[in-house]
């Protein structure tokens, strides 16, 4: 099985902007059609206040079919009264997400947020980790190329172990909080220059 990841940057026509709508459609399928989350939907796509031109998307394909996506946003993003999803949730501004989830408020041009991670049920269980790690490693590469050093994401605490096993320097960045689908916590990846590129790439290649 062949997996690939692609950058989708609406400001960069040389990126795979053709996959943008597919990412939003996958999110609609996963979050709204299958999980039943109460999110905004139009034209078969799911999108929210954080889907702005400055948002970067990474798309994962399996044998040429889009099966995963993740969205990146710099944590110093401010637009139309919102910041980034984790900080807005932390401040209690997002219904259905727990508040007080960060050790401290973090706003920095060198720290990015990863959100709206969606993976299709088409991905077999035994390669789900591999696909996820491929997406997060592609995010790491993008963040580092953009001068960033860290990334935040909100996930089940078990992923702390998944990413550590894969060679990432990752830690909790807030308490575990209950929500409808189980506990979540903010994870923080630190991408130091000597991040074990080799280790991660070996794991990504399966």
């Amino acid at each position: 099985m062949m997996t690939n990841t692609f950058l989708v940057d609406l400001r960069d026509p040389s990126s795979r902007v053709d996959l943008y709508a597919d990412c939003l459609r996958l999110r609609k399928e996963v979050f709204i059609s299958q999980m039943g989350w109460n999110l905004y939907e139009a034209s078969g796509c799911e999108y929210d206040q954080y889907d702005i031109p400055a948002s970067i998307h990474l798309a994962a394909t399996l044998n040429g079919v889009l099966v995963g996506c993740i969205r990146l946003l710099r944590t110093d993003s401010v637009h139309s009264g919102v910041t980034y999803m984790i900080l807005d949730a932390h401040r209690g501004k997002i219904p259905n997400l727990p508040q007080g989830i960060m050790h401290e408020e973090l706003v920095s041009e060198s720290v990015w947020e990863a959100s709206r991670l969606a993976i299709s049920t088409l991905v077999p269980g035994e390669i789900r980790n591999q696909l996820l790690i491929g997406l997060v490693d592609a995010a790491r590469r993008y963040v580092q190329e953009a001068g960033g050093v860290s990334m935040l994401g909100m996930m089940h605490p078990a992923f702390l172990r998944t990413f550590r096993r894969a060679g990432f320097n990752v830690r909790r960045f807030g308490p575990t909080a209950p929500q409808r689908d189980g506990p979540i916590c903010v994870l923080r990846w630190d991408f130091v220059a000597e991040t074990s590129e080799r280790t991660i790439s070996v794991l990504c290649s399966g």
Binding site: V30, M35, L117, A118, T121, R128, M155, H156
Partner: peptide, 13 residues
């Protein structure tokens, strides 16, 4: 059960 719990919110298992 572990997979369902871990992937909830990401993959609709």
């Amino acid at each position: 059960l572990y997979s369902v719990r871990k992937w909830s919110g990401i993959v609709p298992l």
